[in-house]
Design a protein around this nucleic acid. Sequence first.
DNA 1: ATTTGTGAACCCATTCACAGCT
DNA 2: AGCTGTGAATGGGTTCACAAAT
Lengths: 284, 284
Amino acid sequence: MTAHGADVQDGDGQTTAASRTDSKRSPAIEVPAARERARAIPEAAVARLAVYLRALSALADQNVNTVSSDELAVVAGVNSAKLRKDLSYIGSYGTRGVGYEVAVLIGQIERTLGLTRKHSVAVVGIGNLGHALANYGGFPSRGFPVSALFDLDPDLVGVPVGGIPVSHLDDIVQVCSEREVTIGVIATPAQGAQEVCDGLVAGGVTCILNFAPVVLQVPEDVEVRKVDLAVEMQILSFHVARRQQEAAAEADRSDVDGADIGPPGDGGRVPGEVESANRMVERL
Amino acid sequence: MTAHGADVQDGDGQTTAASRTDSKRSPAIEVPAARERARAIPEAAVARLAVYLRALSALADQNVNTVSSDELAVVAGVNSAKLRKDLSYIGSYGTRGVGYEVAVLIGQIERTLGLTRKHSVAVVGIGNLGHALANYGGFPSRGFPVSALFDLDPDLVGVPVGGIPVSHLDDIVQVCSEREVTIGVIATPAQGAQEVCDGLVAGGVTCILNFAPVVLQVPEDVEVRKVDLAVEMQILSFHVARRQQEAAAEADRSDVDGADIGPPGDGGRVPGEVESANRMVERL
DNA sequence: ATTTGTGAACCCATTCACAGCT
DNA sequence: AGCTGTGAATGGGTTCACAAAT
């Protein structure tokens, strides 16, 4: 589940390129893009830095001054080698034989994540979830002031939610650009989401957190992260199914070994008419 | 950002194992676990199957009967090669030269994801987010009936939310096991989350969707997925920062090429006293 | 003529294991 | 003696590119 909500292809087949059976040969000319940013912290590591930061904050609250990678790894739920490698991407701030100074690490991670600056947030769609987000105390208290809310509903427009009045969706471009919104949160139903997204982008928003169950199409300089409840539930469902299946297989140890059933089971269930399929696409 | 909310280590260093410089040699004896499930759909692919399913459902609603991998790939926001590979994990249901029958694919994906069976859901923590989730129409309408709600607040206990009455947290073990809850959704503040989690597990819940900003410790047969708002925001923040940094670098094309600054910038900002750090850990 | 299904190549991420510093 | 920082090895996932099928 990497990031990048939408890459919208770059041209699937017909690669034009010359890469073929000269497998071992890396291109003689170092592509400029490659050195362009030798920096580059792996996406996966960035996500974990945020987790480490939280763990470190908790430690700081308990007046812990120093942690070893082993200790921090446990509370962050990763293994210590990974933790150390992740930290190594942002520099060397540990002391061998001792560990890391909590305060220093917090500072460095905050710097890396760009948390030393405020990012004003707009929430679009003031339904159940939108309300929850607008009222979410944790937003403003840590560098993410909510500075605009939007909805279509005329009954909502003008009403203050979590302290700031709801604007009409029609004004999204102007309001976003006026208030210099950098992060847009889409909490609308699926139908409107793409349009909302376009509005945000037109208003200069380059980072979007999308709760609507659609794949947004955006220009490549816009970063989209997706939180998709239906997908999460279905992944869990998959694991339930797998578990059951394994249990079943375990149960009848009839040694059905040679019978390599290609796709699992296919035990008689004809696809038949699909019962309307997942309509998890309503209103959050 | 793979899944597996908590693996809680398996022993970081000292691997005991014999793997060393015999790099190219794969172990002569095929490990039993390896064939145990030649099945095994990659985690990443499972997540995408859910996305394809939604796209396919939308197509079905528009009475589209057939799609090519190219078409489906576009609406799902992936490239067609990946799509085909993903589908190949669940079997061969396409027709060369033609494409896939929408209805068939929907059926097969639903089967694979275990959506042919109901999974009853419990929501714990009926705050803003909990309310949103309990009222979420998309839950029950597609195989995920909400069958229990829990909260600590005595004013809430007994009150029906989204049709079903809130139970007290103290009863979580019993209620979960009585109502055969298979998926638990944790929407509590961070403090209570681990305890809630333990309760769910004690009540027989093996899949958990965690909105609380903590890393849950669970037995290895329990599957945890995490949705972490603070982390998402911070990842976006990182991208804003990176973009700015790039723009800045672009601006002063003084060709500072040899000066390979290790950790980015470090431009004068002393870590200093950390201002309480991210307290995004309040109440959703 | 088209489009699937898939081995092989490639690339990114994780894990190992140890040298280097305190 | 202990712990960090990191090359090297491994593994998982993605992309390529083409043979097979209709």
